[in-house]
Simulated assay, not measured.
Amino acid sequence: MQYPDLVILYVEQASQSARFYSRLFDLAPLAETPTFAMFRFASGMRLGLWSREAAEPGAEAMGGGGELAVRLDDAAALEACFDSWRAQGLRIVQPITEMDFGRTFVALDPDGHRLRAYVAAV
């Protein structure tokens, strides 16, 4: 069976983005070079950070065209995440809001990629 297990975000500086995501998720990269870093989450999903200049074929798009979504267990965890990300200096572009799919908020990483934290309604 085929299924996606890796999300790649194109970034300006892979090492700078790796430090950002290491702090954000309290997780060390599995691998890191000057142009690429790879993380693996407990769920098994992997996140790659690839320098836009080094990507083959060349990457044109940058942040904002999609979201990296983080599911949380409950409203208290969502509020704690919101407070933590705001304290770390992430730009919050959507405050905690009730949406059709549940409670959520959105922040941006240094390259403008959208980071959505949410608690599912179902």
Rank of each mutant, 00 (worst) to 15 (best):
R52L: 06
A31D: 08
F39I: 00
E98K: 13
M62Y: 12
L30H: 03
G89Y: 13
V119D: 02
F105R: 06
E67F: 13
Q13P: 00
L68D: 05
G64I: 09
V70T: 13
V93K: 08
L90R: 12
L115C: 09
A31L: 12
P110F: 06
L47V: 02
Q2C: 04
A87H: 09
L90Y: 11
S51W: 01
S15K: 15
F25C: 02
S51T: 10
R40V: 02
E60S: 12
D100N: 09
E56K: 15
A28G: 03
S15H: 08
G63N: 11
L47R: 10
C81V: 06
R114W: 07
V119K: 11
P110D: 03
Y3K: 15
S84M: 12
S22G: 02
V11P: 04
A42G: 08
L47G: 01
A117S: 15
G63E: 08
F20A: 01
I8F: 09
S22L: 00
F101T: 08
M62S: 15
P29H: 05
A14R: 04
F101D: 08
R116E: 10
L72N: 10
M45P: 00
A117V: 13
V7D: 00
G112H: 11
A107V: 04
R46W: 01
E53G: 00
Q94D: 05
V93D: 11
G48T: 01
A37P: 02
F105D: 02
M1K: 13
G44V: 05
A59W: 12
Y21G: 02
L30Q: 15
E53T: 10
R91A: 14
Q16V: 11
L24T: 08
A31H: 13
L24C: 06
V11N: 07
Y118L: 14
R40C: 07
I96R: 12
R116I: 03
V70S: 05
V119M: 08
G65S: 11
Y118C: 07
F105W: 06
A87D: 14
R116P: 02
V93R: 14
A76N: 14
E67A: 12
D74Y: 06
V122A: 14
E53W: 01
A14W: 04
F41R: 04
A55T: 08
G58V: 04
M38H: 10
D100E: 14
Y10L: 02
Q2K: 15
A55Y: 10
I92E: 06
S84I: 00
G48Q: 06
F36S: 05
A54S: 14
V106I: 15
A117D: 09
G44F: 06
Y10E: 03
V122K: 14
R91Y: 00
D111W: 00
A31Q: 15
R19Y: 02
I96W: 10
F25D: 01
L30T: 06
A59H: 08
S17P: 03
Y21V: 01
A77P: 06
E32V: 03
R116K: 15
D111Q: 06
M1A: 15
D26F: 04
R103P: 00
P95W: 02
G89Q: 09
F25T: 01
P29M: 00
L68S: 03
Q13F: 01
V122F: 12
P95C: 04
L90W: 10
F25Q: 05
G66W: 12
V106N: 05
F20H: 08
T33Y: 07
S17Y: 01
V7C: 11
R23M: 05
R23D: 09
V106F: 06
Q88S: 10
L9P: 01
A87T: 07
M38K: 14
A18K: 11
G66E: 04
